[in-house]
Every structure is written in structure tokens, then in C-alpha cells.
Design a binder for these strands. Structure first.
Length: 575
DNA sequence: GCCGTTTTCGGCCCGACTGTTTTCAGTCG
């Protein structure tokens, strides 16, 4: 009898669903698996308990068939029908679905008619002009797919910041269990340490005792796929998910210097080097030297200090003026996670969230938040079970009851109201006026012109009830580009109307991005950092949003949800 | 495959958009 986590089983069922779709089977069968996957993901109890007590079918969405599949998976240690499908279908078909504009049906068709098995095969067929002649395709679609393929290849080996962090974390944990003969010190550097939204490579700086043993240690880690290259001072490995991992091996006395060298972008380091030269030091990847002697230095702070600079946090080391600001004493007093007093964009089960409002309230309380806002979707977003007027009213009543029960957190009645394709909002003003907080956002009409989308958002901001524009760029990192929008205009309008712009902290979005956040704050726009949580775990994403704020040079006062509850009410009331 | 019954099979979150067609299937959110 093997053991699987809820996440593990959910992943298996989801994969099964996708493969069934590609295999051209009944789409509702596939949907049933996908549905079951979601239920298990959201389950509070362990799925293994259901298996051992033989009551899997008590779970909504799991019937005889799927219960049997799960039991078999536990029994065998693998999922028989999944393995069967995997051996029947080329594995590359799955990646075809990553392309926007290509779904399971088309993947099935491409495989059946042209024996296309992966993206490379598709690229060749597209170049050869073979696709346009297929039924349901055409010249235009061929052109779009080609651009999708090119975009995909560009991001092929890039992973989300949150994924890079969890992989890096696993590696660190792997080292913790070893004695310090093999690894005396290890720290994340590079773009992951700077909290860039997309990561190409994960860098570590390592002080080892016995480098031979260190190599074996890495090679033996279960999530390391292979070692690409090994020299005396660097090991390059590839993780199972295909991302490159560099271990820079340094001597203990070189650790702080190496950390600075491998953390900021090159231009940041070059400017530090120039400052060092002016002070008759030499700065290189080993550290700070004077008269060819390495100075005994313990930390990065000390190096910055010797150069006459305050410490510059990794998030700012992008050569966007931070050195100049440090020299003139104008570095931002960067906002931190502990400054955040509440989360103002949270979904519940009433629309498309995983949990009841009460569970989200309990999680927010655990985080020590002073306030939170329940902001489910509005009525026209049917796929997300957008709330009818009656449901919205019922939700308000429910919140009143919860507010009675939990006095130590303020629960705002909010909504994420859709900005419809024609620019109207999804509820009338009199409905919005009764709510504590109104977030407006775009979920339809992504392909409209820059003028249309900009006009939709500016019109929404002119509505006096709208407090926040959520995910203003509408991007999905590495997957979907931002819709066409004139952010300069949006920022100006936000400043003029007192509307807040959101940093959406979802690891898939991080929207606004750091550059535009900084621009908005410069123009005096108030920024709000929200998780857009659809699951209680996702309230933890706040740290990602804060990192965007830090990279955008924000200070505490630039951010709405660092305010006390009273200040927040005053602000919203006047807005 | 699951569910909810008008218990034995029909419907399955839904509507907009797109590119293909010339009335619709596939994709997306």
C-alpha cells in the first residue's frame, strides 16, 4: 500500500483528465476527473483516510469509477489507467496544450491527421504550410499558432518565481540534514534572491568542506535530474522540471563578496566596483581588497559600509538608480511584509473560491490581519459563479453574522465587479454604493484595441464607487501577455480619481509589475497589495506581492493596506 | 464518469469571441 498526498492524487486525476481529452474521449468524462481532482485538492481531510475507511464515494464528485481508480493508485503505487494512456499517447502532446489557441480537440486532430507529437513537430508543420489546409484551421490560425510557438519557446526554460523558491527551498532543506563537512554555508543568490517574477536559473553560493562529497550530495538529490557540468568552483545541474541550477563554490572568506557579485545584475556590481576604485579598494567576485590583500569581511552590509553606502536590499539591485540614491541618502525605506495589515481581495466558495468565507476569515485572523475584504465575482462572470443580486445580499448577511462571531478582525463587504466588454460595470451604482469596497477588473474582451480597453478601465475609475482596479495589465506570467492597455493613461487617471491600483500577488500574475508600480507611485497613485486568494493557502502569496512593491521602490505609506482599519475607512469613505 | 432523479438516462458552471465557415466548433475566462 503506497501513500499519496491529496495534492499527489489531485495531480494524477488532472493529468488523466487532460489525456482523456486529447485522446478524444467524452469531454464530460474528462470534466468528471478534473472536478474530482479539484475536490480532492480542496479537501480538508487526508484522502488516504478515505481510502482506508472505504468511503471515497462520500466525497462529492467521486463515484464508483474514480473511487476505484484512486484505490488502485494506492494499491499499486501508480495509477494504472494513467500509465496506460501515457504509453498510448506521445508525452509531447501535453505541451501542445500550453499554446494559447490550441485545445485538446485540436491536439487530437493534429496527432491523428499529421502525426504531430510535440511542439517541435508542430513548428515544422506550420513552417511547411501544412496546417492551413486542415479542416477548421486556416492561414490566420496558422500565423497565430506560429507566434504562440515562438512565445512558448522563449519561455520554455523559465519558471515562476514561486516555483523557483519552492525548488530552492527543497534544496536548502536537503542540505540541512547533512553535516557541515559537505556544506558549511549555502545561500540563494541571483534573480531568485532579487525576487524577479520569472526565473531562468537558480543560483546558490556555497561554502563546502569536502567538494567531492558535495558533488555526490547534489547528484544524489531526488529532484536533480542530471549534472551538466562540474568545475572546481561551479556545479551546474538541471532539476526535474528542467530549470538550470548553479552552485557557485567559494571559500569561506569569499562568501560575502561572492554573494554581492552573484546577486545584483552586472551593472549594479560594476557601479560598486567603480565606487570601490575611487576609495582605493578593489572589488571583485572574491570580495573587497586593499593593496592586493583581501579584507576580512563578515557580511554584505560590511562591504556596502566600506564603500560608504547603506545596505541595499537584493530586490533593488537592478541598476535602476539605487546606487545613486544610496549615495545621496535617498534609498527608499522599503515596505516589508509585516507592514501589511489586511488583504482586500479574497474569494469564497460562493463564487469560484475553494472555501467558505469563515475559513478564509480564520486564516486571515491567523495571519494577524486587522481587516480583510470578501470580494467574490459579479453576476456576468458565469464560469466563476458570479453572484446574482440575491446572492450578493445573502453574502452580506453572512458577513454580518461572521462579524458578530469574530470581533478581532474587520470583514469588509466587497465585490470584484466585472468591467463589461462595452465598458459598463456589472452592477448598477446603487448596488455598488451599499458595499464597503469595490474592485473593478477585466475578465472578458482581452483582444480589444488599446483604445477600447484603456477607455473601459478609465470609465470604471470615474465611477465614484470603484476603489481599486485589480490586475491592471491582465497578464499571466510566461503564458499570456498583457492585454493592450495604455498604462500611462491609466496611471494618470488613477491619480486624478484617487483610485488605487493593485499589485496582484498571485504567483501567476504579479500584476502591476515593478516598473509600472514605481511609475504609479511617483504619480501619487495609492497602491494596494492583494492576494486574490481562491484558497486559504493562497493568502500566503502576500509576500510575493510585497516583493513587487519593494522592487518598485515603494514605502509603507505608498500602500493602502498598511493603513489601520480606521485610516482605511476614512480613505475609502472620502474616495 | 458523476449526479439526480420524472430511478435508468440525460445533462453536465456559460457566454463571448474567433476563425472558420455560411451556421458552428473550439477556445477561453
Amino acid at each position: 500500500m503506497s501513500d499519496f498526498t491529496n495534492k499527489g492524487i489531485a495531480r494524477i486525476l488532472k493529468q488523466l483528465a487532460v489525456l482523456l481529452e486529447i485522446n478524444g474521449e467524452n469531454k464530460y468524462k474528462a470534466r468528471a476527473y478534473r472536478n474530482a481532482s479539484r475536490r480532492i485538492m480542496d479537501l480538508d481531510e487526508d484522502i488516504s483516510d478515505y481510502v482506508s475507511s472505504e468511503n471515497l464515494q462520500d466525497i462529492d464528485g467521486i463515484g464508483e469509477g474514480i473511487a476505484e481508480t484512486i484505490k488502485d493508485t494506492f494499491k499499486n503505487g501508480f495509477c494504472p489507467p494513467l500509465e496506460e494512456l501515457k504509453s498510448a499517447l506521445p508525452s509531447g502532446l501535453l505541451e501542445l496544450l500550453e499554446l494559447p489557441g490550441l485545445g485538446p480537440s485540436s491536439a487530437h486532430q493534429l496527432f491523428e491527421e499529421l502525426k504531430i507529437e510535440d511542439i517541435e513537430g508542430l513548428r515544422k508543420a506550420l513552417k511547411a504550410g501544412k496546417i492551413r489546409n486542415l479542416k477548421g484551421f486556416g492561414a490566420r490560425r496558422e500565423e497565430k499558432l506560429l507566434s504562440s510557438v515562438e512565445n512558448y519557446e522563449k519561455y520554455r526554460n523559465v519558471i515562476l518565481l514561486s516555483d523557483a523558491q519552492s525548488q530552492a527551498e527543497e534544496i536548502l532543506i536537503g542540505f540541512q540534514s547533512k553535516d557541515d563537512l559537505e556544506c558549511r554555508e549555502i545561500k540563494i543568490a541571483g534573480s531568485t534572491r532579487r525576487w524577479e517574477s520569472l526565473i531562468e536559473k537558480i543560483d546558490f553560493i556555497v561554502v563546502t568542506g569536502e567538494s567531492g562529497q558535495f558533488f555526490e550530495l547534489i547528484a544524489g538529490m531526488e529532484f536533480i535530474d542530471k549534472i551538466l557540468n562540474q568545475t572546481e568552483d561551479k556545479i551546474t545541474a538541471v532539476s526535474e522540471s528542467g530549470v538550470e541550477i548553479n552552485f557557485w563554490i567559494v571559500k569561506e572568506e569569499h562568501f560575502p563578496g561572492a554573494l554581492i557579485y552573484h546577486t545584483g545584475i552586472e551593472e549594479h556590481f560594476n557601479k560598486l566596483r567603480e565606487i570601490a576604485a575611487e576609495k582605493d579598494y578593489q572589488l571583485n567576485k572574491y570580495g573587497l581588497m586593499q593593496d592586493s590583500e583581501l579584507l576580512a569581511i563578515e557580511s554584505e552590509e560590511e562591504i556596502y559600509g566600506k564603500l560608504g553606502l547603506p545596505y541595499i536590499i537584493p530586490e533593488l539591485r537592478e541598476d535602476r538608480g539605487e546606487i545613486e540614491a544610496a549615495l545621496s541618502g535617498n534609498l527608499p525605506d522599503s515596505i516589508g511584509l509585516t507592514d501589511i495589515r489586511g488583504d482586500l481581495h479574497i474569494h469564497s466558495r460562493l463564487s469560484d473560491g475553494a472555501h467558505a468565507i469563515e475559513e478564509m476569515v480564520l486564516t486571515a485572523r491567523e495571519k494577524g490581519y486587522e481587516y480583510m475584504a470578501v470580494t467574490d465575482h459579479s453576476r456576468s462572470l458565469k464560469i466563476a459563479h458570479g453572484l446574482s443580486l440575491a446572492q450578493l445580499k445573502a453574502e452580506g448577511k453572512l458577513i454580518d453574522e461572521l462579524q458578530e462571531k469574530y470581533g478581532d478582525i474587520k470583514i469588509l463587504k466587497g465585490i470584484e465587479v466585472d468591467i463589461l466588454s462595452d465598458g459598463r460595470l456589472d452592477y448598477e451604482d446603487e448596488i455598488l454604493s451599499e458595499l464597503d469596497l469595490v474592485i473593478a477588473s477585466i475578465h472578458t474582451g482581452f483582444r480589444q484595441s488599446i483604445e477600447q480597453i484603456t477607455a473601459r478601465i478609465t470609465r470604471a475609475m470615474q465611477n465614484p464607487h470603484v476603489d481599486i482596479i485589480a490586475h491592471p495589465q491582465g497578464r499571466l506570467l510566461g503564458r499570456r501577455k498583457s492585454y493592450q492597455v495604455d498604462l500611462e493613461k491609466i496611471i494618470k487617471k488613477a491619480a486624478a480619481t484617487g483610485t488605487c491600483l493593485e499589485i496582484n500577488a498571485s504567483p501567476f500574475r504579479l500584476d502591476l509589475d515593478d516598473i509600472n508600480v514605481r511609475e504609479a507611485a511617483r504619480e501619487g497613485v495609492k497602491i494596494v497589495i492583494n492576494t486574490d486568494a481562491h484558497h486559504s493557502d493562497e493568502l500566503n502569496d502576500m509576500k510575493l506581492g510585497v516583493s513587487v512593491a519593494q522592487r518598485g521602490w515603494l514605502e509603507k505609506d505608498d500602500v493602502l493596506n498598511t493603513m489601520s482599519y480606521k485610516q482605511l475607512c476614512d480613505y475609502l469613505g472620502s474616495g
